[in-house]
Amino acid sequence: TFVALYDYESRTETDLSFKKGERLQIVNNTEGDWWLAHSLTTGQTGYIPSNYVAP
């Protein structure tokens, strides 16, 4: 799992909003700078900017 370093507000319907400190499970990280992730807090799935999270 990864932890959010910053808050992120989604800009498209495929993005995932999250708050700093939220735990995220990475589903697919082969898309370059945008990873498909599942929030362990909200249960939602969407794309996140990879530079906003850390292991």
Rank of each mutant, 00 (worst) to 15 (best):
V53A: 06
E9V: 14
A54N: 08
S50K: 14
T45A: 07
T42M: 03
W34A: 06
S50I: 06
L16F: 13
L5F: 03
A37P: 00
T30V: 11
Y47G: 02
T1E: 13
G32F: 09
G21P: 01
G43Y: 06
A54Q: 12
H38G: 03
I26K: 06
N29A: 14
E9H: 10
G43W: 05
Q44A: 11
L5A: 03
V3G: 02
N28R: 08
E9D: 12
S17G: 09
F18Q: 00
Q25V: 15
G32R: 13
L40M: 10
K20V: 09
A4S: 05
L16T: 04
S50C: 08
D15N: 11
Q44C: 10
S10D: 03
T41Q: 11
F18V: 08
P55A: 11
G21A: 03
T45R: 09
K20E: 08
Y6S: 07
S39K: 06
Q44I: 08
N29S: 13
N29I: 15
G32T: 13
G43C: 07
T1W: 15
G21Y: 06
E13F: 08
Y47E: 03
E31N: 15
V53K: 02
I26P: 07
T14I: 11
R23C: 12
S10L: 03
K20Y: 06
R23S: 14
L36D: 01
T42W: 02
G21W: 05
T12Q: 12
P55S: 10
T45Y: 11
D33A: 11
N29W: 14
T12F: 14
T42A: 03
V3I: 14
T30F: 10
S50R: 11
G46R: 00
G21R: 01
T12E: 09
T30C: 08
Q44T: 06
A54D: 08
S39W: 01
L5E: 04
G46I: 01
V3S: 04
L36G: 01
Y6Q: 10
V27G: 05
L40H: 07
E31A: 14
G43E: 05
D33C: 09
V3L: 09
Y8M: 03
E22G: 01
S17I: 04
E22P: 00
D33H: 13
S50E: 04
P55Q: 12
E13H: 12
D15F: 12
S39P: 00
F2I: 05
F18K: 00
Y52E: 01
Y8V: 01
S10I: 04
I48M: 03
G21Q: 02
Y47I: 06
G32H: 13
E13V: 09
Y6D: 06
R11T: 14
S17K: 06
A4C: 07
T14G: 15
V53T: 04
V3T: 10
L36F: 12
E13K: 08
K19M: 09
Q25T: 12
D7S: 07
G46H: 00
S17C: 06
T12Y: 14
V27M: 14
D33T: 12
L16I: 12
Y52G: 06
L16G: 03
E13A: 13
V53H: 03
T41E: 14
G46A: 03
Q25L: 15
T45L: 09
T45F: 11
W35Q: 04
S10H: 06
L16M: 14
L40F: 09
D15A: 10
S17R: 05
Y47P: 01
R23P: 11
S17W: 04
T41S: 13
N28Q: 10
T41R: 11
E13I: 09
T1A: 08
A37W: 01
K19L: 09
L40S: 05
L5W: 04
T42F: 02
L24N: 00
Y47L: 11
V27S: 07
R23M: 15
E31R: 14
D33G: 14
E9S: 11
K19I: 08
T41G: 07
D15M: 10
W35N: 02
V53Q: 02
